[in-house]
Each structure stands twice: as C-alpha cells, then as structure tokens.
Nucleic acid binder design. Sequence first.
DNA 1: TAAGCGTGGTG
DNA 2: TCACCAAGCTT
Length: 314
Amino acid sequence: MVRQGYRPNGADPWPGGARPSCTIYAVISAALVHDWFVANARDLPWRRPGTTPWGVLVSEFMLQQTPVARVAPVWEQWIAEWPRPSALAATSRADVLRAWGKLGYPRRALRLHEAAAAIATRHGDVVPSDVAELEALPGVGTYTARAVAAFAYGRRCPVVDTNVRRVVARAVHGAGDAGPARVKADLADVDALLPQDDATAAVVSAGLMELGALVCTARSPRCGVCPIQAECAWLANGKPEYQGPRRPVQTFAGTDRQVRGRLLDVLRAADAPVPREALDAVWDDAAQRDRCLLALLEDGLAEQTDDGLFTLPA
DNA sequence: TAAGCGTGGTG
DNA sequence: TCACCAAGCTT
C-alpha cells in the first residue's frame, strides 16, 4: 500500500535541489520488518543469549567500517580475554593494538580502551544505557550510542547506520540511495517507523539494519525476497537510479593511510622496540614516511623510547 | 562540513 | 581487473 505524495515528518528529504523525479512516498510496516528479522536474522556471535552490554559495545566499535566476517573471530577473542570493561582498561595499549590486529582504523582500539577506562571508573564497570552518557564516551557517536541502547538494553530508539539510511531512502522516500547524512532528519524518519513498545522497537531497529545488509543491498538489491516489497516507494517508482552527489571513493594506494598501516604493521609484529631502519624499509618516500611516523606518535599509536627506538605505546 | 582514518573481499 | 564497498567517528 503505497501512498502518493506522503512525506514522513513533512521533511524535504532532498534539500538543495537534488530531488529526484519520483513523486511516490510510502509508509512501511514495522511489523513486517520485525517478523522478517525474527525468521531471518543471522546467527552472529554478539547476538547470542548471554552477550553482555559490554559485548555489544565491543562489537559496535569493531563494526565501525569493518565487515562482519572479519570482526567475528576477533570479537570472540576479546570477550574471552576481557569480559568486563575494567579488564580491558587494565591492559596496555600495545596489547590492545596487537589484539585489534588488522581490523583497520586502529584509533578505534585506543578509543575503546579509553571508553573501557571511563566505564570502569565513572560507571561502576557497567556500560551506560543512557544515550547521552554513551555519546560522552570516546569513540561513541550518534549511531553507536543508539545501537547499544537498543541492542544491549532493548530500548526504543532510532538506530541509523548506512544500511538503515539506504532502506529508508528507498522504501520510504522512493530514491535509489541515501544522499549525504542528515542526522536529525534521518533519526526522525526512523523514529516515525518504530512501534511504541521498547522491546519490539529494538527488534525492528535490528531488522532494518539486517534488511539493508542482506536484502536491500547497495549493489544488487534482492527485491524479490524483500518483506516490504509491496510497500516500497522505490519499487513503486520504477527503481530510479540515485541522482544526488556521491561521496568520492577513498583512494588507498599511495596515501598516508597505507603508509601508516605498513608502519604500524611493523610495530605490531615486533616483540621489542625497532630501530628507524626497520621502518624505513617499508616505504620509499622518506618525507611521506617521516610525516606518517610523526602522525602515529601524535595519535598515540606509536612511541619512541629513550634510546631512539620505536614501539607500540605502553 | 568535508576530509582523513586501515584493511581486505568482491561484482 | 579494480572501483566499490563494509554496523562511523573526529576534527
């Protein structure tokens, strides 16, 4: 049941004249998403019964821009070794960075380490359930705070990640994909979809993400198996292609990110501080290499010993 | 607000 | 093959 001309919240989803030609908007049924999720949810480690809020928080940190398949084994190790925030907080940054391994964006590991310390000292070793308190933790932003409130504590709150933005852009707004993030409007869009009951709303939040991850995917959506295909405004509009601005794809080869990754790889693998020559070997451009090493030191991802060797931070 | 931050799988 | 993509956050 697709309604023409309906706009949730009265908000213009395409500010700045990027409006596509479609005119159909839709209301989608939370109950369909809920039931689909109950029947089709993946059996992910952090969804198992007995997972603590700390386990959920750790999973959310690791999942920030890193695929599920690479996170799963590392998450298992972390939870076995550090079952509480205080346990992680008592660990050296070097060990934390080694355990993070090659998940990428290692600054996340340092922020999780800092967040663990804050939870241990300021929250009695219990992950907060309040969104504002969660957002006050290092490395916890709009998405992660709400994900923890919903998935760890069963709260009714909108959880908006890249999957949900895509699902809403298509099913509700009839567009091919989501434009640039509009945090408040995105949260309001999803809030309008959620049922009132906390526990049910939390399942719907998980369901919207799962739908985006498994069915309403970026490249080739599987509309034929979608539980809300009959309500989808994008389908009703004839699946128009996305018209708005694309975020440019991040290059990697030759960038500082690649150099930092190589330098850090050396430090992670070494069981003792290494001389500068060991780092020089991984990149030819000396100026870029030095700039990146300095940046790693400033970011707290590396340290220099008194005798001039380099190592992961204590 | 836009750019920077790792890594590896894939269509 | 190689762009594109993957449960974002910070400055």
